[in-house]
Design a binder for these strands. Structure first.
Lengths: 154, 154
DNA sequence: GTTGAAATTAGCCACCC
DNA sequence: GGGTGGCTAATTTCAAC
Protein backbone atom coordinates (compact mmCIF):
# COMPACT_ATOMS: atom_id res chain seq x y z
CA UNK A 1 0.00 0.00 0.00
CA UNK A 2 2.62 2.50 -1.06
CA UNK A 3 0.64 5.53 -2.05
CA UNK A 4 2.35 8.30 -3.89
CA UNK A 5 0.53 11.55 -3.37
CA UNK A 6 2.07 14.71 -4.73
CA UNK A 7 1.37 18.34 -3.95
CA UNK A 8 -1.30 18.56 -6.65
CA UNK A 9 -3.20 15.60 -5.21
CA UNK A 10 -3.06 17.15 -1.76
CA UNK A 11 -4.51 20.36 -3.07
CA UNK A 12 -7.32 18.47 -4.74
CA UNK A 13 -8.07 16.54 -1.55
CA UNK A 14 -8.08 19.73 0.48
CA UNK A 15 -10.48 21.37 -1.96
CA UNK A 16 -12.81 18.37 -1.97
CA UNK A 17 -12.87 18.19 1.82
CA UNK A 18 -14.15 21.76 1.84
CA UNK A 19 -16.65 21.38 -0.97
CA UNK A 20 -17.08 18.22 -2.99
CA UNK A 21 -19.46 19.93 -5.39
CA UNK A 22 -16.74 21.86 -7.16
CA UNK A 23 -16.60 20.82 -10.81
CA UNK A 24 -13.49 19.20 -12.24
CA UNK A 25 -13.13 22.38 -14.29
CA UNK A 26 -12.76 24.73 -11.30
CA UNK A 27 -10.81 22.13 -9.33
CA UNK A 28 -8.39 21.95 -12.22
CA UNK A 29 -8.06 25.71 -12.39
CA UNK A 30 -7.19 25.75 -8.70
CA UNK A 31 -4.20 23.47 -9.28
CA UNK A 32 -3.23 24.54 -12.79
CA UNK A 33 -4.59 21.50 -14.61
CA UNK A 34 -7.03 21.02 -17.45
CA UNK A 35 -10.41 19.55 -16.64
CA UNK A 36 -9.61 16.15 -18.12
CA UNK A 37 -6.23 15.87 -16.40
CA UNK A 38 -7.91 16.84 -13.16
CA UNK A 39 -10.62 14.27 -13.79
CA UNK A 40 -8.03 11.54 -14.23
CA UNK A 41 -6.41 12.54 -10.92
CA UNK A 42 -9.71 12.36 -9.10
CA UNK A 43 -10.55 8.94 -10.52
CA UNK A 44 -7.14 7.69 -9.42
CA UNK A 45 -7.65 9.05 -5.89
CA UNK A 46 -11.02 7.32 -5.73
CA UNK A 47 -9.65 4.04 -7.03
CA UNK A 48 -6.77 4.12 -4.57
CA UNK A 49 -9.37 4.43 -1.83
CA UNK A 50 -8.02 7.77 -0.63
CA UNK A 51 -11.45 9.22 -1.23
CA UNK A 52 -13.93 7.00 0.56
CA UNK A 53 -17.06 8.80 -0.49
CA UNK A 54 -18.98 12.01 -0.85
CA UNK A 55 -21.41 12.98 1.89
CA UNK A 56 -23.77 15.79 2.77
CA UNK A 57 -23.05 17.42 6.12
CA UNK A 58 -26.21 18.27 8.03
CA UNK A 59 -26.82 20.88 10.70
CA UNK A 60 -27.23 19.04 14.00
CA UNK A 61 -28.99 21.88 15.78
CA UNK A 62 -31.62 22.37 13.09
CA UNK A 63 -32.36 18.66 13.21
CA UNK A 64 -33.01 18.95 16.94
CA UNK A 65 -29.75 17.43 18.17
CA UNK A 66 -28.77 20.04 20.72
CA UNK A 67 -26.87 17.82 23.16
CA UNK A 68 -23.61 16.00 22.69
CA UNK A 69 -21.84 13.66 25.10
CA UNK A 70 -18.66 11.70 25.43
CA UNK A 71 -19.53 8.57 27.38
CA UNK A 72 -16.85 6.43 28.98
CA UNK A 73 -17.81 2.81 29.38
CA UNK A 74 -16.12 0.13 31.46
CA UNK A 75 -16.99 -3.53 31.05
CA UNK A 76 -17.15 -6.24 33.70
CA UNK A 77 -14.90 -8.38 31.56
CA UNK A 78 -12.38 -7.66 28.83
CA UNK A 79 -12.74 -11.08 27.27
CA UNK A 80 -13.06 -11.41 23.53
CA UNK A 81 -16.72 -12.37 23.73
CA UNK A 82 -17.57 -9.52 26.10
CA UNK A 83 -16.05 -6.97 23.76
CA UNK A 84 -17.77 -8.45 20.73
CA UNK A 85 -21.15 -8.49 22.44
CA UNK A 86 -20.82 -4.85 23.45
CA UNK A 87 -19.62 -3.74 20.04
CA UNK A 88 -22.44 -5.50 18.25
CA UNK A 89 -25.01 -3.93 20.55
CA UNK A 90 -23.57 -0.45 20.09
CA UNK A 91 -23.94 -0.65 16.31
CA UNK A 92 -27.71 -0.69 16.67
CA UNK A 93 -27.99 2.56 18.63
CA UNK A 94 -28.34 5.36 16.08
CA UNK A 95 -27.49 8.14 18.57
CA UNK A 96 -24.06 6.59 19.06
CA UNK A 97 -22.10 8.30 16.31
CA UNK A 98 -18.71 6.98 17.29
CA UNK A 99 -17.34 4.20 19.43
CA UNK A 100 -13.68 3.64 20.18
CA UNK A 101 -11.93 0.81 21.96
CA UNK A 102 -9.53 2.61 24.25
CA UNK A 103 -6.17 1.99 25.83
CA UNK A 104 -6.18 2.90 29.50
CA UNK A 105 -8.78 2.76 32.23
CA UNK A 106 -11.92 3.16 30.13
CA UNK A 107 -12.73 0.33 27.80
CA UNK A 108 -14.75 2.41 25.38
CA UNK A 109 -15.41 6.02 24.57
CA UNK A 110 -18.67 6.82 22.80
CA UNK A 111 -19.65 10.05 21.15
CA UNK A 112 -23.41 10.41 21.21
CA UNK A 113 -25.94 13.04 20.25
CA UNK A 114 -29.36 13.57 21.84
CA UNK A 115 -32.37 15.72 21.11
CA UNK A 116 -33.28 16.45 24.75
CA UNK A 117 -33.05 15.23 28.33
CA UNK A 118 -35.60 12.45 27.86
CA UNK A 119 -33.65 11.27 24.87
CA UNK A 120 -30.48 11.15 26.94
CA UNK A 121 -32.15 9.35 29.83
CA UNK A 122 -33.44 6.70 27.45
CA UNK A 123 -30.00 6.32 25.94
CA UNK A 124 -28.31 6.18 29.33
CA UNK A 125 -30.71 3.50 30.51
CA UNK A 126 -30.19 1.52 27.34
CA UNK A 127 -26.43 1.66 27.73
CA UNK A 128 -26.26 0.77 31.41
CA UNK A 129 -29.09 -1.73 31.68
CA UNK A 130 -29.56 -3.33 28.33
CA UNK A 131 -26.06 -3.56 26.97
CA UNK A 132 -24.11 -6.70 27.78
CA UNK A 133 -21.40 -6.61 30.46
CA UNK A 134 -21.40 -2.89 31.24
CA UNK A 135 -19.85 -2.24 34.67
CA UNK A 136 -19.72 1.55 34.76
CA UNK A 137 -20.65 4.56 32.69
CA UNK A 138 -19.42 8.09 32.98
CA UNK A 139 -21.06 10.76 30.84
CA UNK A 140 -19.34 14.00 29.93
CA UNK A 141 -21.52 16.63 28.38
CA UNK A 142 -20.20 19.06 25.80
CA UNK A 143 -21.26 22.60 26.66
CA UNK A 144 -20.09 24.05 23.40
CA UNK A 145 -18.26 22.84 20.31
CA UNK A 146 -15.16 25.01 20.04
CA UNK A 147 -13.77 23.42 16.91
CA UNK A 148 -15.10 20.81 14.52
CA UNK A 149 -12.98 20.09 11.48
CA UNK A 150 -14.84 18.01 8.96
CA UNK A 151 -11.76 16.64 7.30
CA UNK A 152 -8.21 15.54 7.92
CA UNK A 153 -5.08 17.67 7.67
CA UNK A 154 -3.85 16.99 4.11
CA UNK B 1 -36.49 28.68 13.45
CA UNK B 2 -39.48 26.40 13.04
CA UNK B 3 -38.39 23.91 10.46
CA UNK B 4 -40.94 21.67 8.92
CA UNK B 5 -39.34 18.49 7.73
CA UNK B 6 -41.56 15.73 6.49
CA UNK B 7 -40.85 12.08 5.85
CA UNK B 8 -39.76 12.76 2.27
CA UNK B 9 -37.18 15.32 3.38
CA UNK B 10 -35.84 12.89 5.94
CA UNK B 11 -35.40 10.24 3.31
CA UNK B 12 -33.54 12.70 1.09
CA UNK B 13 -31.26 13.75 3.94
CA UNK B 14 -30.55 10.12 4.80
CA UNK B 15 -29.69 9.35 1.19
CA UNK B 16 -27.41 12.37 0.87
CA UNK B 17 -25.60 11.54 4.09
CA UNK B 18 -24.71 8.18 2.58
CA UNK B 19 -23.79 9.44 -0.86
CA UNK B 20 -24.12 13.04 -1.95
CA UNK B 21 -23.27 12.16 -5.55
CA UNK B 22 -26.62 10.56 -6.27
CA UNK B 23 -28.36 12.45 -9.07
CA UNK B 24 -31.63 14.26 -8.37
CA UNK B 25 -33.17 11.75 -10.74
CA UNK B 26 -32.33 8.67 -8.64
CA UNK B 27 -32.91 10.57 -5.40
CA UNK B 28 -36.38 11.39 -6.65
CA UNK B 29 -37.04 7.79 -7.61
CA UNK B 30 -36.09 6.74 -4.10
CA UNK B 31 -38.80 8.90 -2.56
CA UNK B 32 -41.39 8.78 -5.33
CA UNK B 33 -40.80 12.27 -6.68
CA UNK B 34 -39.99 13.67 -10.10
CA UNK B 35 -36.52 15.04 -10.68
CA UNK B 36 -37.62 18.66 -10.68
CA UNK B 37 -39.77 18.29 -7.57
CA UNK B 38 -36.85 16.56 -5.87
CA UNK B 39 -34.57 19.36 -6.98
CA UNK B 40 -36.82 21.96 -5.35
CA UNK B 41 -36.78 19.99 -2.10
CA UNK B 42 -33.00 19.88 -2.10
CA UNK B 43 -32.67 23.60 -2.75
CA UNK B 44 -35.08 24.30 0.10
CA UNK B 45 -33.09 22.07 2.47
CA UNK B 46 -29.92 23.89 1.50
CA UNK B 47 -31.47 27.33 1.93
CA UNK B 48 -32.90 26.40 5.32
CA UNK B 49 -29.36 25.50 6.32
CA UNK B 50 -30.25 21.91 7.08
CA UNK B 51 -27.61 20.87 4.57
CA UNK B 52 -24.43 22.70 5.52
CA UNK B 53 -22.31 21.46 2.67
CA UNK B 54 -21.00 18.56 0.63
CA UNK B 55 -17.66 17.09 1.54
CA UNK B 56 -15.36 14.32 0.43
CA UNK B 57 -14.53 11.78 3.14
CA UNK B 58 -10.90 10.72 3.04
CA UNK B 59 -9.27 7.55 4.30
CA UNK B 60 -7.27 8.48 7.39
CA UNK B 61 -5.07 5.39 7.29
CA UNK B 62 -4.03 5.83 3.67
CA UNK B 63 -3.08 9.42 4.43
CA UNK B 64 -0.82 8.17 7.19
CA UNK B 65 -3.01 9.08 10.15
CA UNK B 66 -2.85 5.84 12.06
CA UNK B 67 -3.25 7.18 15.61
CA UNK B 68 -6.21 8.83 17.22
CA UNK B 69 -6.50 10.31 20.71
CA UNK B 70 -9.01 11.88 23.01
CA UNK B 71 -7.13 14.41 25.09
CA UNK B 72 -8.61 15.86 28.27
CA UNK B 73 -7.31 19.29 29.14
CA UNK B 74 -7.66 21.20 32.41
CA UNK B 75 -6.84 24.88 32.63
CA UNK B 76 -5.29 26.79 35.53
CA UNK B 77 -8.10 29.28 35.35
CA UNK B 78 -11.64 29.14 34.04
CA UNK B 79 -11.83 32.86 33.48
CA UNK B 80 -13.28 34.22 30.28
CA UNK B 81 -9.88 35.33 29.00
CA UNK B 82 -8.22 32.00 29.81
CA UNK B 83 -10.83 30.08 27.86
CA UNK B 84 -10.63 32.44 24.92
CA UNK B 85 -6.85 32.24 24.79
CA UNK B 86 -6.91 28.46 24.81
CA UNK B 87 -9.64 28.23 22.19
CA UNK B 88 -7.87 30.59 19.84
CA UNK B 89 -4.63 28.64 20.15
CA UNK B 90 -6.35 25.33 19.48
CA UNK B 91 -7.79 26.56 16.18
CA UNK B 92 -4.30 26.76 14.73
CA UNK B 93 -3.36 23.14 15.37
CA UNK B 94 -4.43 21.14 12.31
CA UNK B 95 -4.20 17.77 14.06
CA UNK B 96 -6.89 18.88 16.50
CA UNK B 97 -10.01 17.84 14.62
CA UNK B 98 -12.46 18.61 17.41
CA UNK B 99 -12.47 20.62 20.61
CA UNK B 100 -15.31 20.70 23.09
CA UNK B 101 -15.81 22.82 26.17
CA UNK B 102 -16.99 20.30 28.74
CA UNK B 103 -19.19 20.24 31.80
CA UNK B 104 -17.52 18.34 34.65
CA UNK B 105 -13.94 17.96 35.75
CA UNK B 106 -12.17 18.36 32.44
CA UNK B 107 -12.35 21.76 30.85
CA UNK B 108 -11.86 20.57 27.31
CA UNK B 109 -11.90 17.36 25.33
CA UNK B 110 -9.90 17.29 22.11
CA UNK B 111 -10.04 14.69 19.38
CA UNK B 112 -6.71 14.60 17.57
CA UNK B 113 -5.09 12.49 14.88
CA UNK B 114 -1.37 11.78 14.48
CA UNK B 115 0.80 10.12 11.89
CA UNK B 116 3.25 8.51 14.31
CA UNK B 117 4.81 8.70 17.78
CA UNK B 118 6.99 11.68 16.94
CA UNK B 119 3.98 13.49 15.66
CA UNK B 120 2.17 12.81 18.91
CA UNK B 121 5.08 13.90 21.05
CA UNK B 122 5.29 17.17 19.15
CA UNK B 123 1.59 17.70 19.60
CA UNK B 124 1.70 16.81 23.28
CA UNK B 125 4.53 19.23 23.88
CA UNK B 126 2.73 21.93 21.98
CA UNK B 127 -0.42 21.45 24.02
CA UNK B 128 1.21 21.30 27.45
CA UNK B 129 4.00 23.83 27.05
CA UNK B 130 3.00 26.31 24.42
CA UNK B 131 -0.73 26.63 24.97
CA UNK B 132 -1.85 29.31 27.43
CA UNK B 133 -3.02 28.29 30.92
CA UNK B 134 -2.89 24.52 30.57
CA UNK B 135 -2.72 22.86 34.01
CA UNK B 136 -3.04 19.19 33.12
CA UNK B 137 -3.38 16.93 30.13
CA UNK B 138 -4.57 13.37 29.98
CA UNK B 139 -4.31 11.50 26.71
CA UNK B 140 -6.47 8.51 25.85
CA UNK B 141 -5.47 6.54 22.82
CA UNK B 142 -8.00 4.84 20.60
CA UNK B 143 -6.90 1.27 19.90
CA UNK B 144 -9.56 0.66 17.29
CA UNK B 145 -12.53 2.55 15.87
CA UNK B 146 -15.52 0.31 16.50
CA UNK B 147 -18.11 2.59 14.96
CA UNK B 148 -17.87 5.83 13.02
CA UNK B 149 -21.12 7.19 11.64
CA UNK B 150 -20.50 9.98 9.21
CA UNK B 151 -23.92 11.51 9.63
CA UNK B 152 -26.67 12.16 12.11
CA UNK B 153 -29.69 9.98 12.80
CA UNK B 154 -32.38 11.52 10.57
C1' DG C 1 -47.50 18.91 -6.14
C1' DT C 2 -46.63 17.38 -11.46
C1' DT C 3 -44.69 17.03 -16.55
C1' DG C 4 -41.91 18.35 -20.35
C1' DA C 5 -38.74 21.14 -22.79
C1' DA C 6 -34.85 24.30 -23.26
C1' DA C 7 -30.44 26.08 -21.96
C1' DT C 8 -26.39 25.33 -19.52
C1' DT C 9 -22.96 22.75 -17.34
C1' DA C 10 -20.42 18.78 -16.02
C1' DG C 11 -18.68 14.14 -16.64
C1' DC C 12 -16.53 11.12 -19.49
C1' DC C 13 -13.93 9.00 -23.33
C1' DA C 14 -11.04 8.52 -27.45
C1' DC C 15 -7.22 10.45 -29.33
C1' DC C 16 -3.42 13.48 -29.49
C1' DC C 17 1.52 15.35 -27.62
C1' DG D 1 2.42 12.52 -17.08
C1' DG D 2 -0.05 16.32 -19.92
C1' DG D 3 -4.10 18.76 -23.32
C1' DT D 4 -8.34 19.20 -27.03
C1' DG D 5 -12.55 18.21 -28.60
C1' DG D 6 -16.90 16.01 -28.69
C1' DC D 7 -20.61 13.02 -27.10
C1' DT D 8 -23.58 11.93 -23.34
C1' DA D 9 -25.77 12.76 -19.18
C1' DA D 10 -26.95 15.79 -15.51
C1' DT D 11 -28.36 20.07 -13.54
C1' DT D 12 -31.14 24.04 -13.59
C1' DT D 13 -34.73 27.07 -14.90
C1' DC D 14 -39.03 27.79 -16.90
C1' DA D 15 -43.96 27.57 -18.51
C1' DA D 16 -48.09 25.40 -17.97
C1' DC D 17 -50.95 22.32 -15.44
Amino acid sequence: MTLQIDAVDRKLLRALQEDSRKSVQVLGEGVGLSASACHRRLKALEEQGLIEGYRAVLNAGKLGYSMQFFIEVGLTSQSETALEAFETAVQDIPEVLECHLMAGQSDYILRVVCQDHDDFERLHRRLSARLPGVARIHSNMSIRTVKARTGLPV
